[in-house]
Design a protein around this nucleic acid. Structure first.
Lengths: 129, 129, 129, 129
DNA sequence: GTGGTCTAGACCACG
DNA sequence: GTGGTCTAGACCACT
C-alpha cells in the first residue's frame, strides 16, 4: 500500500506522511477508516517502528488522522469541498512554481503550453490502462 | 542576485547550486562570465564561505562552471541546443510528476488543463511587469 | 451522568475516577448509594469494561467506594467536615499553583485579582441557569 | 535553568516544553536569544538527547522557537501584546476550570473568593523575598 | 560544534 | 493487541 524510496534524500518518515496524505486526499482511505498499525507498516516497509510513529505524529498535527487509545489511528474527517480545494490549491502552487521557472528560463508561453498538453495526454493515456 | 530560503529543508548549498544553474540556463550568466567570489557571495547571503564553496564544487562536477587558479570561477560553455533541450527535459519531468499526482487525486484532465491555463496566464502577466 | 473526553491525554479510567469523585464530594451521590454496574457504565460510555473496572479499583483504594460481593459498588461514608475540608484543600492547592505561575509570568496581583473576579462572576451566572 | 520532575506522570519532553514556554512568556528568554544546545540540556538534565530534541520540535511547531541550521535553536519573535494576551488567556482558562469545579462541589462564591484572596496574599508575600 | 534521522530495543498505559 | 515514551548509540548534513 505504501511505497517508499530508500535512496531518496527525503526522510523516510516524510515519505510516509506524503503517501498517507495522498491516500486520504484521493479517498483511497475514507474518513474513520482504521490505518494499519505502526508495527504492521514498519514490518512491511522494513523500517523501525519509531520512524513510522514519527510519521503518524506528523499526520496527527496535520489533522489528517486521529488516535483512539489502544485501538490505533483513524482517518480524520474532512469536508469533501475542503478536500477538493486542498488538491486544487496543491496543484496550483506546484504548477505556478514550475511555470515561473520555465518562463525565467526563456521559454515562451506557447512552448510551455505545448509541453503541458503533451504531458497531460501521455499521462491520461497511461492511466486508462 | 542569488536568493535563498533559510528555513527550507533543502540544504543551502543545493539552493545556491539551483540558483546559479537557473542563471546559467536562463543566460543571465553567459559562457565564460566570471562568477562573484565565494567570499563575496557568502557575505551577501550571510552564509558560511564553506557552504558556498561546497555549492561551487557541486557546480564544477556538473560541468556548469570551471575554475582558473587564482582567478575564480567561470561559466562553462554549453551548446545552445543542449541548453534548450535541458530546460525542456526538466520541465517535462516536473510536469509529468505533478500531473500524474493530480490524476491520482481524481482530477479530470479538463480540470487540470483549466488550472494550468489559469496559472500560465497569471504568471505571464506578472512577468510582463 | 459521567462525561469523558476521548481525545484528552488523561487516561479514561482516571477521568472516570475524577467524575465519580466529583459526584461524591458534591453529594450528587450520597453515602451508601449504589453505583451503576461496571457493565452499565461501560455500555453508556462505549468503553471497555476493563477500563471502568480499573477506575473502580482506584476509587476503592482511595476509600471513596466499597464493594459488597455480588451486589456491586457503594459510596463510602465520609464525615461532612472531612468532605468540605478536602474540597477546600483541593481548591487551595490548585489555586496556589496557578497564581504562582501567573506571578512568575509578570502579572501583578491586582491584574490576577481582576481576572479572577471576572471568572467567578461568569461562572456563577452560568450556574444559575 | 530548566527543572524537571522525574517522578511526575507528565512526560519529560512535555515538562521541558512547559519550562521553556514559561521562560519565553516571562521574558527570561528574549526574542532571538539562543537556547542552550540539545546536547547541553540533555547533559544537564541527565536525559537522552532525543528526549530534548522531541521537546524542541514541539516548541518549533508551537512557533515558540526556530532553528538555524548548524547554529542551534532561537527564541521566535512574539508581539508583546500577543504575549500578554496569551498569559491572560491561559490564566483565564485554568481559573475557569477550577472555579467551575468548586461551584459544582457546593462552595459558595464568597467562600471561593476568600480562599482565592488568601492564596494571592500568600503567594505575593513569598515572591517578595 | 549544531540539529536531523534512524535503528534497536525496552518499558508502560490503555483497551 | 494498540500507541507513547525513553535510552543508547550511530551516521549525516550543515556551519
Amino acid at each position: 500500500m505504501i511505497r517508499i524510496n530508500e535512496s531518496s534524500p527525503i526522510p523516510i518518515y516524510l515519505q510516509i506522511v506524503e503517501e498517507v496524505r495522498r491516500m486520504i486526499l484521493s479517498r483511497t482511505l475514507e474518513t474513520d477508516d482504521r490505518l494499519p498499525s505502526i508495527r504492521q507498516i514498519a514490518g512491511d516497509l522494513k523500517v523501525n517502528p519509531n520512524t513510522v510513529a514519527k510519521a503518524f505524529q506528523e499526520l496527527e498535527t496535520l489533522n489528517l488522522i486521529y488516535f483512539k487509545r489502544g485501538q490505533g489511528a483513524f482517518v480524520a474527517p474532512i469536508a469533501k469541498e475542503d478536500q477538493k480545494m486542498q488538491i486544487i490549491a496543491d496543484l496550483n502552487t506546484k504548477l505556478t512554481e514550475i511555470v515561473k521557472l520555465a518562463v525565467e528560463m526563456g521559454l515562451k508561453p506557447a512552448e510551455i503550453s505545448n509541453i503541458f498538453k503533451n504531458v497531460l495526454e501521455t499521462v491520461s493515456r497511461q492511466e486508462e490502462n
